[in-house]
Design a protein around this nucleic acid. Structure first.
Lengths: 202, 202
DNA sequence: AAAATATGTCAATATGGCTGACATAAAATC
DNA sequence: GATTTTATGTCAGCCATATTGACATATTTT
């Protein structure tokens, strides 16, 4: 599917800005003779913004993961277990949208190497509740650091330009991009209603 | 690497909202006793927003691609060739951040099946300039449609809530999320300075 | 003439998805 | 209490898409 960023194994490259001199691009889309951005163009640009932002965004922790011989799959698990201590396997699968067989592989490695711990559920002893170990929390933090910095910087930069509620506007748009069925799931853990309890429904 | 969404081959599943009743999540992060979102939490939430928004966003065209037996890689190529008619292989590689061997495979298929056409560069005859064929433009459009709709809807919803410059703020943040080296590259094709010519430097 | 560049291609490998089938333990239901 | 359902784990194989390294070709630059 669409415009999902690839993985890039050994963080190499860094090409030095290509010449970009198009010859004769046949038909420059639609109505932008002088300086009008028609809706279609604006929307396609938004699509690309998502692509590029995400591409750069997820490029941050790669080097670190490589040191551990982990991949993005491991990162995702670590992140969401870190965010939802005691999450069940089923819930994790629901977030990640992968099969249990796929999850099993990375989860097994994470457990073997001591980043994730399991615990039998007390109410339902079939369940395996997942937690980060000390090492797991540590790695999680080191992985998140560059991403947090990136977001913080971006919000600052943009906020300075666009008004201090830029962050709020950004969040609202991002949230509105979700499938409706996922809104509440995500909203639950979000700051929108700061008072709401996070990740549980007692 | 981190929190990049998986591919989901045969668009199945759709789990019916799990129970989500955590037992005793040990330590609920940091300082949110009552209703305070510390910076770290806000930033982590932003990270997740990017993950979830992107996950849903790229899920749109999957069904369509499957009809053609294409994957996300094909979509990416079609999109960027469509946006940059006459783009060279090297430029495309630079955008996609993959190796030429990886590109070669999907590009070959797209050419064989008549969605992309090559043309020898006139100034530099080593170059292969890439264009979408009629069929390619058509597919590109059909792929983009649900994504455009999604973005349009999101901007509307959020704009209604957050003021009409929500779009502007959103774009500024998204752009600020990019690596500095990529800013100008991306800005070039963006609406920020509506007057600037797109994708060329004559 | 030699070197650098743009592209293509062969071959091997890894990651992380997928499917299907089956196994176990615990809970829920009849 | 027996049966069925649920949560999880696991084996085995497949596929898409990425990687690396090496090398070939045509063309442009030096």
């Amino acid at each position: 599917m669409p415009i999902a960023t690839p993985v890039k194994k050994h963080v190499t490259k860094e090409t030095p800005a290509p010449e970009r001199a198009r010859e004769t691009a046949p038909a420059e889309k639609g109505a932008d003779a002088a300086g009008e951005a028609d809706d279609a163009t604006r929307l396609v640009e938004a699509i690309e913004l998502l692509f590029f932002a995400y591409r750069d965004f997820i490029s941050d922790p790669d080097a670190l993961l490589a040191e551990y011989d982990f991949g993005r799959a491991h990162h995702r698990v670590i992140h969401f277990v870190g965010r939802n201590p005691g999450i069940t396997v089923a819930e994790l699968l629901d977030i990640l949208r992968i099969t249990k067989q796929s999850l099993a592989r990375v989860l097994k490695q994470l457990i073997e190497r001591g980043f994730v711990a399991q615990e039998t559920g007390r109410k339902d002893r079939r369940q395996r509740l997942l937690y980060l170990t000390e090492a797991g929390r540590d790695l999680n933090d080191r992985l998140a650091a560059p991403q947090r910095e990136r977001v913080a910087r971006a919000l600052l930069e943009a906020g300075a330009e666009a008004g201090s509620d830029a962050e709020d506007a950004w969040r609202k748009v991002m949230l509105a991009l979700l499938n409706k069925e996922n809104r509440s799931e995500v909203e639950d853990r979000l700051a929108d209603g700061r008072d709401r309890p996070k990740g549980r429904k007692p």
